[in-house]
Design a protein around this nucleic acid. Structure first.
Length: 289
DNA sequence: AAGGCTAACAACCGCCATATC
DNA sequence: CGATATGGCGGTTGTTAGCCT
């Protein structure tokens, strides 16, 4: 489904801020005369003009003084998520997907923090991406998006595939908001496709701040969360070879790449990495655990 | 052709932290 | 120091388009 212009479609259909026909029957918060629902072009224009003149902040008084029958919260959200000049629109790129996956494995659903590393993208947009794309994959795999199984699938299949699709490791990956100074070698530590989690230890994948590193280059572990941490797993990657065996995962991935690697064509949507064969393969991996 | 389903995204809600009075 | 205002954040809902049956 090509939704790259969904927003424009919504606009033309009367849904969204620039809908020319939005207004008359829009809900109004009773008593206060406050409007809710989609923003009209006129409201957008008023808000943009006012912010350009007076700057951001003090959203409640801004709403009053600008003559907008909206809550301050609504104005702030509209500005930050849509009207700001720096807001980038359009499909999430593969590089951005990679960053999102990486940062989500590190921080979980801290969307605003993740958004700091994707200039122009809003936390709302990233959150929507996660819910509509990533959670869909988890559903297809019949596992919870926060489960160890799905986390492993992302790390050992999805992310390496993304890197390949991109054409190798990016020249730089932002380890700091906006300014990117990370070297390729640092990035390799993050998604080490040769890495297989060791056995033993407790799992805490649902608590992203407490993810326990169990196989990180020793000179890196001390640096905290700057590098990928792998939750210890008693279920996968055990020393006796069950689940993700020390070498098995990589050879399996290699085989499975041969199956469909060329099938994704020029489409940049990540879900195409997950065709039926991929899902079958992953389900096998998960059920073997 | 019609209805159901899904994807995508804007907008809202509730809670919490911080700032201000 | 307490009360109120404001802003930020994550979760959830609502709406529409497009696809599928």
């Amino acid at each position: 489904m090509d939704t790259s212009n969904v927003h424009d479609q919504m606009k033309s259909a009367g849904y969204g801020s620039l809908a020319a026909a939005a207004a008359p029957d829009q809900p109004i918060e009773e008593g206060l005369g406050l409007r809710t629902g989609p923003w009209t072009a006129e409201e957008d224009s008023i808000l943009i003009d006012y912010v350009n003149l007076h700057g951001e902040g003090r959203w409640n008084s801004l709403a009053r003084h600008a003559g907008l029958k909206r809550t301050g919260k609504s104005c702030r959200l509209r500005w930050l998520n849509y009207l700001r000049p720096s807001v980038r629109r359009g499909n999430i790129t593969l590089q951005e997907q990679l960053i999102i996956l990486r940062l989500h494995s590190r921080w979980g659903n801290r969307w605003s923090k993740i958004a700091e590393y994707l200039p122009g993208r809003t936390d709302n947009e990233i959150k929507n991406y996660w819910r509509t794309r990533v959670q869909k994959q988890a559903k297809q795999l019949k596992c919870d998006v926060n489960s160890k199984q799905f986390q492993d699938a992302m790390r050992y299949v999805w992310i390496p595939r993304l890197i390949e699709r991109i054409g190798g490791l990016p020249e730089s990956l932002p380890d700091q908001p906006r300014t990117c100074t990370t070297t390729t070698s640092e990035f390799e530590y993050w998604v080490d496709t040769n890495f297989v989690p060791k056995t033993s230890g407790s799992t805490s994948s649902d608590s992203y701040d407490q993810v326990q590193a169990c196989s990180i280059p020793t000179d890196r572990t001390s640096s905290g969360d700057e590098f990928m941490t792998y939750p210890c797993s008693g279920q996968y990657g055990s020393e006796n070879g069950s689940g993700y065996s020390q070498n098995g995962i990589n050879s399996d991935i290699h085989d499975f790449e041969q199956i469909d690697y060329c099938s994704t064509g020029g489409d940049t949507s990540v879900e195409n990495l997950w065709n039926e064969e991929n899902i079958w393969f992953l389900q096998q991996q998960l059920s073997d655990g």
